[in-house]
Every structure is written in structure tokens, then in C-alpha cells.
Amino acid sequence: MFARLNGFDRSLTDNFMQLESEMDRLFQAAGLRSRHQTANRSGQPQMHIGSTESQVDIYLPVAGIDPKAVTISLEGNQMTISGQRDVEKSESAKLVKKERFEGQFHYQINLPDDVDQERVEASYEHGVLHVKIARREAAKPRQITIQ
């Protein structure tokens, strides 16, 4: 009843959302985004995979997880990354907007055939999981010296 009296309850959250979309629209109208490739509006950047002659790197953006709760396995040239993400909850606060991903994730990646099972390293920094897999020596181009 109190909330209805001063109209406070609604305005706070409504303004937030309404004006936010307005901002987006203004940015677009001003052409500020035209030069950028606007990515998926889902808000999560995609996984990056890159390779050089000596290694394959996987960058998986997954913020706010416990890296110990992530399982990384390599079977042949199939890499599996799976884990669980929990987001902050509060009993006293009301959730007025919920967009962040919560739950389990699972990725399966086909790697080149020459990856070295024994040399896999993983690190987690700034919310990005980086898995580095070394490639076997034999696969690297060899330089042949002419005698």
C-alpha cells in the first residue's frame, strides 16, 4: 500500500529499462555503431579458437565461475569443457532484471589430429578460460638444410 501511495515501486525499475532501450536507439540513430559489427544481442561473446604451428588456444569467456568446478577433458582430438555457473542471489533484494546465464554449460571442440594429449594447460583470468594444447613436434614443418 505504501508503494502505491508514493508511486515509488514502479518508477525505479520502469525508468531503468525504458530509458536504457532509448539510449540504444539513440546510439543507433547517431550511427555510432555502424562501423562496428554488432554481435549477437545475446550479450555473450563467442568462444575463440586459434592455432599456430606449435599450439592450439581456446579462449572461452565465462565470467564469475569457480575454475575448480570446470572439467576439461581431451579424448583423441575431442576436447570437452563443461561446468556449472551460479549467479549471486539475495533474499532481501528484489531481482528487477535477470539476463545473466545460470546453470550448466558444455562445449565440445574438434581439435587438429596432432594435438599432444600430455601437454594441455588451462588458466582462468578476468573471467576467460584459456586452454592451451601443444601440437606434436612431428607436425611442425621441418627446415631441411642443404649440405
Partner: peptide, 29 residues
């Protein structure tokens, strides 16, 4: 200039004292 512009996902919690906005921006230092 060639970057991918991504709109981060957010959660907003509101309590009596204020709001807490949580945004996922992995990879940003």
C-alpha cells in the same frame, strides 16, 4: 576500430537502500 560490440548481460537487484547491478564482462581487466 575493428571490434565486436557486445551488449553485456546484466542482473539488477533492488533493495531498500539501493540497487546492485551485475554485468558479465569476461576478458576485461
Amino acid at each position: 576500430d575493428s571490434y565486436q560490440s557486445v551488449r553485456p548481460r546484466v542482473d539488477i537487484h533492488e533493495d531498500k537502500e539501493g540497487i546492485t547491478l551485475l554485468a558479465d564482462i569476461p576478458g576485461v581487466s
